[in-house]
């Protein structure tokens, strides 16, 4: 196949545009967050997500979420075939709005926590967890 100089330039520009366009890397995750927040703004402060930097096995990855005063915290795994992980709804007798669990991650990816805070606003935090591929399966 032969390209003229103009065509080559055009393709280059097109490629450059694609890389800078804020395309939605994971529409499913964005939709799930929008559904949870009703499209509200997401603050950076207000929710803490603790997850290991490196998980030895993606089958059982310990995580902890905490958002003082929150009514609910949703956890998503952006790179899983189905991103939802869990939603914690805190009742009147929750002594703290925090919880730990163990989750499955299909590979290295971002884990996202979105909290609905006491004043009705929303906050988000994400952590990248590297899931290692073992040498000795089975």
């Amino acid at each position: 196949m032969h390209f003229t100089r103009r065509e080559t330039l055009a393709m280059g520009a097109g490629a450059a545009l694609l890389t800078v366009l804020p395309f939605r890397a994971n529409a499913a995750v964005d939709d799930l967050i929008a559904e949870f927040t009703g499209g509200a703004e997401l603050a950076d402060a207000g929710v803490d997500l603790t997850a290991p930097e490196i998980a030895e096995n993606g089958n059982t990855v310990p995580i902890e979420v905490s958002a003082p005063g929150a009514t609910a915290i949703m956890v998503l795994a952006a790179g899983n075939p189905t991103p939802p992980v869990a939603t914690f709804n805190f009742g009147h007798l929750a002594a703290s709005q925090s919880a730990s669990t163990r989750i499955r991650l299909a590979g290295t990816q971002d884990v996202i926590a979105v909290a609905q805070l006491a004043d009705g606003s929303f906050a988000r935090e994400s952590k990248t967890v590297k899931v290692t591929i073992g040498g000795c399966g089975g």
Partner: peptide, 24 residues
């Protein structure tokens, strides 16, 4: 040392049967 991303141990059996996260 590592074998791919697995950290090789001495292969001791003093903890078996062992709960392996892979098979849960």
């Amino acid at each position: 040392n590592y074998i791919r991303a697995d950290h090789l141990s001495q292969g001791q059996t003093n903890g078996f049967p062992t709960y392996r996260l892979k098979q849960a």
